[in-house]
Design a protein around this nucleic acid. Structure first.
Length: 871
RNA sequence: GCCCGCCUGGCGGAAUGGUAGACGCAGCGGACUUAAAAUCCGCAGACCGCAAGGUCAUGCCGGUUCGAGUCCGGCGGCGGGCACCA
């Protein structure tokens, strides 16, 4: 890549973006083009565009540029279509990185965060986004998290907040709770100590109360991507099955039986063993009696809490020595502890039927447990059917199964549940994979959970008049653990109930809580209640939400839950926060390594092309060879990042926006390339030049083009086809197609040398207006050149309409196929009869050759498209 | 491991089941220029052929259809998520 190709300072550009962009940003500001009232007027067509707000890491990255450009195109387009568009921006400002910065560099999390916000706000402003900055807030503002505390207290009253024991990753050296990402290969990232699972009393939000509704309501989200709904549906994980109680042959610690959940009660006769999770009471009991079992339970604890790690670990187990009786046959089976049984799912215990479950089969083979098939495949022979290394999991006929014999799987399930219920050994149930939402974090930089612990009164909510519970500012990060817990005075308060000395809750909220209602707060960001009803009733739901696919499950599900919980506690009256959702792909870049294997930034490298056409690279200012690596997601660790600030300074915001939209469909991962940006920059200059070159001598804006002029008509056709094509592309989020249609339109304008001035003015003005959602500054500049006296900015103009009369074609090109293979194309007038078309098609020399004298058996004509002759 | 996606020229991609490769990037040839940059004009999937034209081609294998990049089944590769990163 030759870096000098389009370097602006060498290119003698005519369009000076560096001067123009701030000027138009100020013009939009001065006229308050993007401000909307807190309560939309009843007759307004409101449209709420929201992009997922950023974590203030310090600098915007290309993922932000992509996200906010996409949203801005929608916002500007919808505004032009006559909608009252709310388009706010804020900061997801609590979280671990601020605390890490405090520990590593001694900066206070608040100072670090607000400085980052200031930097990023400046960068975002330079992008020319049509945002209403007056609504800005950060989730770490006490005015925000104080209202969040109010919500939590209201949820508590509504029975949606509970205290419950749950497992965390515990670093025994640092004496601190670790996030999953802080556990690397089973060890704490700072101490290197083997991580343990530890049980803590935690705050939990009762999302499972809404599991059925969260699942069913997915069906109504018709502007959400199917795959996101599918992922959420699988996550919620409704499954029908049975709880089955197995009696222990002898009571263990006073317990007489153990309950399992199964989706396959029809395979009960194929049982081989029962397995419990390492955290199950039976496992604890076994560990107390047997050193080997205790070792195994300890080993499972050292795996941490991450489901991905647990599921990928080698499947292992140990026999507890306890035995259970089969509810139907009375036969005895061993109870094992298995590392793949999850305590959080079902009852933390399963029965193993190896013949019909792959994981059970592998476990049974490993430990030499019995494998009895009880479902016979359709064409299977009961005498010879056996299970080898593949479990049989499809439908079939029950056999070896007593009273279930002969039934298909679905009937056998029902019959088994009936029998279990009759003898009191079990019950048919619906089970959910979704777990309640643990929101407690033992950290400083988060929203304090507003409760007080009193020895006499128990857990007492902080009274409303004492909100917000503010974070103390004088905190000590020099020792590990939660600084709120260490703080000398903060947690010591009087009980609001009895006045005796009591302790504040020192846990803070999961940051997903902060982002679960910010979209509602934007409607009335300064209110002294969480939300103002008239404002949220008027603005919600968000009409178009845009963000990364990585949030497909958690953030979106939590927000859907929060919206329901806020409705249940009287703050809202809707269930679904996001009517439309668009998930964008990631931004990627090539990665580079020096001779010694160190990662290099793109700006450290010189590129050249060998005579054979291969790209090679060296380190700038030397000949050290550089290995060009894979294209992958931009990350600081691989140094394959490009700084948006530098790009905007070099090429301007419109170029960055244009390139990021043009490269590929927005839902896919895109590759950032220097040559692509350079091409986009050239186009901005070209648009300016086209307008600048033609503007002298144009007739007045109301001039009419002579309908008899063929060049004028051709250009006007191109103009109105462009309106139609760009509009359709914007409506369907096909922004790369919209860009391509604008390139074609620009090509058509330049080709229209003979077109009369009226048609040319129309074309140039439409070009500026169609490009405006994507290149808003250049559009204003072009509009200003064309209409120096105009009072109105492009940002205030309505979207142009295509004239249908100019869209109808006079003739069409038809593809002529013989047996589905293209043999010719013919041009026919619109409305030609089928007989004429078939005759013309068969008259083609090449078609005749392909037919080769054979009789035509069938003639297919798809009007305007294709003729297919079958011989 | 489980759930969900994606795969089309040298590259990014376009294509209501109907002419595969629009548009752009990179490349090549030409014009302009003392020269370069910028700009403009033109060429361009692979293979065979002087040409007309033909064959192959949308990750791989199979199916449905007059016709498949598009629909269905299987396989492979790459990516997202897996509940304390945001």
């Amino acid at each position: 890549m030759n870096d000098s190709i389009a370097t602006p300072d060498k290119a003698a550009p005519r369009y000076n973006f560096a001067a123009a962009e701030p000027r138009w940003q100020k013009a939009w500001d001065d006229r308050a083009c993007f401000a909307v009232p807190d309560v939309p007027p009843a007759d307004a067509a409101k449209y709420y565009v929201l992009e997922m707000f950023p974590y203030p890491s310090g600098k915007i990255h290309m993922g932000h540029v992509r996200n906010y450009t996409l949203g801005d195109v929608v916002a500007r387009y919808k505004r032009a279509r006559g909608h009252l568009v709310m388009h706010p921006m804020g900061w997801d400002a609590f979280g671990l990185p601020a605390e890490n910065a405090a520990r590593e560099r001694g900066v206070h999390p608040a100072a670090w965060t607000y400085q980052n916000i200031a930097n990023m706000r400046d960068e975002l402003k330079r992008m020319g986004l049509s945002l209403e900055w007056a609504r800005e807030f950060a989730t770490c503002d006490p005015e925000y998290y104080g209202q969040q505390q109010k919500l939590l207290l209201d949820f508590f009253k509504a029975g949606l907040v509970e205290r419950r024991e749950s497992w965390v990753n515990w670093d025994p050296v640092d004496n601190t709770v670790l996030a999953n990402e802080q556990v690397i290969d089973g060890r704490g990232w700072r101490s290197g100590a083997q991580v343990e699972k530890k049980k803590l009393s935690q705050w939990v939000l009762a999302i499972t109360k809404y599991a059925p509704d969260l699942l069913e309501a997915l069906g109504g989200l018709d502007r959400w991507p199917e795959r996101v709904k599918l992922m959420q549906s699988n996550w919620i994980g409704r499954s029908e099955g049975a709880r089955v109680r197995f009696a222990l042959t002898a009571p263990v610690d006073g317990t007489a039986d153990v309950e399992v959940f199964t989706t396959r009660p029809d395979t009960l006769f194929g049982m081989s063993f029962l397995a419990v999770a390492a955290e199950h009471p039976l496992a604890t009991a076994a560990a107390a009696r047997d050193a080997k079992a205790a070792d195994f339970v300890a080993e499972c604890r050292s795996m941490g809490t991450s489901e991905a790690v647990i599921e990928q670990a080698e499947k292992k187990g140990i026999d507890t020595g306890f035995r259970v009786k089969h509810p139907f046959t009375g036969e005895e089976f061993p109870v094992w502890i298995a590392n793949f049984v999850l305590m959080e799912y079902g009852t933390g215990a399963i029965f193993g039927c190896p013949a019909h479950d792959q994981r059970d089969l592998e476990f049974a083979r490993k430990y030499d447990l019995s494998v009895t098939p009880v479902v016979l495949p359709k064409d299977g022979d009961p005498a010879t059917f056996a299970v080898g290394t593949e479990a049989f999991t499809e439908d079939g006929t029950a056999y070896n199964s007593g009273f279930l014999d002969g039934l298909d799987v679905a009937s056998a399930k029902r019959a088994a549940i009936d029998a279990l219920e009759k003898q009191g050994a079990g019950i048919g149930v619906v089970n959910w994979r979704l777990r309640d939402w643990g929101v407690s974090r033992q950290r400083y930089w988060g929203c304090p959970i507003p409760f007080i612990h009193c020895d006499d009164c128990g857990v007492v909510p902080v009274p409303d008049d004492q909100l917000p519970v503010r974070l103390p500012e004088d905190v000590d990060f020099s020792k590990p653990g939660n600084p709120l817990d260490h703080h000398p005075t903060w947690k010591h308060v009087g009980c609001p109930n009895c006045g005796k000395p009591a302790r504040r809750e020192t846990d803070t909220c999961d940051t997903f809580v902060d982002s679960s209602w910010y979209f509602a707060r934007f409607c009335s960001p300064r209110a002294d209640v969480p939300v103002i009803r008239d404002a949220v009733d008027g603005w919600l739901p968000v009409d178009q939400y845009i963000g990364g696919i990585e949030h497909a499950i958690l953030h979106l599900l939590y927000s859907r839950f929060f919206t329901r919980a806020m409705s249940a506690s009287g703050h809202l009256s809707l269930a679904e926060p996001f009517a439309g959702l668009f998930t964008q792909g990631m931004v990627q870049h090539e990665s580079y390594k020096g001779a010694d294997g160190r990662w290099l930034y793109p700006e450290e490298i010189d590129f050249s092309v060998t005579p054979e056409g291969a790209r090679t690279a060296t380190v700038k200012g030397g000949n050290e060879p550089v290995t060009i690596g894979r294209v992958e997601a931009m990350s600081k660790s691989k140094r394959n990042t490009v700084d948006p600030g530098a790009i905007i300074a070099k090429y301007g915001a419109d170029t960055a926006r244009w390139f990021i939209l043009s490269d590929n469909p927005p839902e896919r991962d895109m590759e950032w390339t220097e040559s692509g940006v350079a091409g986009a920059y050239r186009f901005t200059q070209r648009v300016f030049r086209i307008v600048d070159d033609h503007r002298a001598g144009l007739p007045a804006p109301d001039a009419v083009c002579d309908p008899a002029d063929p060049a004028g008509k051709a250009l006007r056709r191109a103009t109105h086809r462009a309106i139609k094509a760009v509009t359709e592309a914007l409506e369907t989020f096909a922004f790369n197609v919209a860009v391509a249609r604008l390139y074609e339109f620009a090509n058509a304008i330049e080709a229209a040398k003979e077109a009369p001035g009226a048609a040319m003015r129309e074309a140039l003005e439409i070009l500026a207006r169609l490009a405006a959602p994507m290149m808003p500054h250049l559009a204003e500049e072009a509009w200003h050149l064309l209409r120096p006296d105009a009072e109105t900015l492009v940002a205030q103009l309505p979207w142009p309409d295509a004239d249908p009369a100019l869209l109808v074609a006079e003739s069409v090109t038809l593809a002529i196929q013989v047996l589905g293979k293209l043999r010719a194309t013919i041009e026919v007038p619109v409305g030609a009869s089928e007989e004429t078309i078939f005759a013309a098609a068969e008259a083609e020399e090449n078609v005749q050759r392909a037919i080769a004298g054979k009789p035509i058996r069938k003639r297919i004509h798809v009007p305007g498209r294709v003729v297919n002759l079958v011989v």
